[in-house]
Amino acid sequence: MRRERTRALILMVALAVLATVGPRAEAATKLVSAYAAISGVFGGLWMAQEVGAFARQGLDSSLVYISSSTQIAQAMLSGEVPIALMGGEAVVNAVLGGADMVFVAGAINRPLFFMVVTPDIQRPSDLKGKALGVSRYGASSDFATRLALRHWGLEPVKDVAILQLGGIPEILAAMKAGGVKGGALSPPTSVRARREGYRELVNTADLGFFPHDAIVTTRAFLRDNEETVRAFIKGYAEGVHRYKTDKALAIDVLKKYTKVTDPELLEQTHALTAAVLEDPPLHLDVRGIQAVLDFLTVPKAKTVKPEDFMDLRVLRELEQSGFFKTIR
């Protein structure tokens, strides 16, 4: 049922684009791309869309929200979404299972989540026997949660239950309803939770590397549509630069996509996310992919290298051409 809703949403976006484009846009390459959460970590992508950065690269771009990287992986493998900004664990798991997916550029190389708990949890050991929420199993919030638990000497599932709740705002809603004792929240939800009296135990970005978000496609799409992938990377790079340097506009963009209107929440969300977004040339840190492989228990994870999951040829060509210097 959820897959059908996702497919219907993508179809509606595509039909809306077809209904509204003018003669000039008809020559552009139509591209639907996905993002995995209502979180400021996607601010660079949203900015690129809003300021016409994709259009300047010849793309008739539309964005679709799919509520976890694991679901984006399913949509990509079914051919519904050819390129996305998504978390790394879902990609690694899919490739280890024989799927065609590949990292082509980086976005955030550390897990920008805050482990936030209800006020009665005074210390990490108080979580034993309790439950934490994640968006989906295998999503970035799931990785961050397991990373934090192991950092505290707690075994995921055995010591602390992990429940999938559908999205980041839904984790906070479950905390308020008493369904879970906490979870891995990203801005602006993490900022809102702290202001409402919930306790932050750790910023998981301080615990190590992880491809929180990266530009991902399939090797088949990259092979057959290299210019489209190049155009997307160029547009996204411009969006990231504008998001980091034009605070006022960035806050307006955050307001539109997150539906948050509180100025303080928006300011803090921008500050937190702008600080960790990779500047062009969008470096992808192999230590993040290796961290995912180290976490996995399947035997194949011990026999592969991070480079097996990457094709950075287009990114390197853009860097060598001097393109990224033109948007600084």
Rank of each mutant, 00 (worst) to 15 (best):
Q164R: 13
S140H: 07
I215V: 15
Y243L: 05
L112A: 11
H151F: 14
R123N: 11
G167I: 03
M101L: 15
F221L: 05
G197V: 10
A105K: 08
D142G: 09
V180W: 03
A139R: 07
M175F: 02
M175W: 02
M115S: 00
T189P: 14
L127R: 06
P119I: 01
H241P: 00
I162V: 13
F143V: 02
T218V: 03
I171N: 08
Y137Q: 06
S190V: 12
D224N: 15
A205D: 05
Y236R: 06
V229H: 12
L207P: 03
V216G: 00
Q122F: 07
R195D: 14
L172R: 07
L201V: 10
L201I: 00
I171C: 10
L172D: 10
T217Y: 06
P169Y: 07
V104C: 09
R195S: 14
R192P: 03
Y236W: 08
E238L: 08
V240L: 01
A131T: 14
A173R: 05
S140E: 10
A177N: 03
F221S: 05
T217L: 02
G208P: 12
R194L: 14
A193F: 11
N225C: 10
A144Y: 09
F232A: 02
L165T: 13
G138M: 06
D126P: 00
G183A: 05
T228A: 15
L112S: 07
E200P: 04
A148S: 15
E226M: 07
K234L: 11
H212M: 09
F221V: 04
L172C: 03
L147F: 04
G166K: 10
A148V: 11
I168Y: 06
G153P: 11
F210V: 01
P119G: 12
G182C: 14
G129Q: 11
D159F: 02
G178L: 11
G153I: 14
L201C: 09
V157G: 02
G179F: 11
T228Y: 04
I162R: 04
S141V: 06
Q122L: 09
T245L: 06
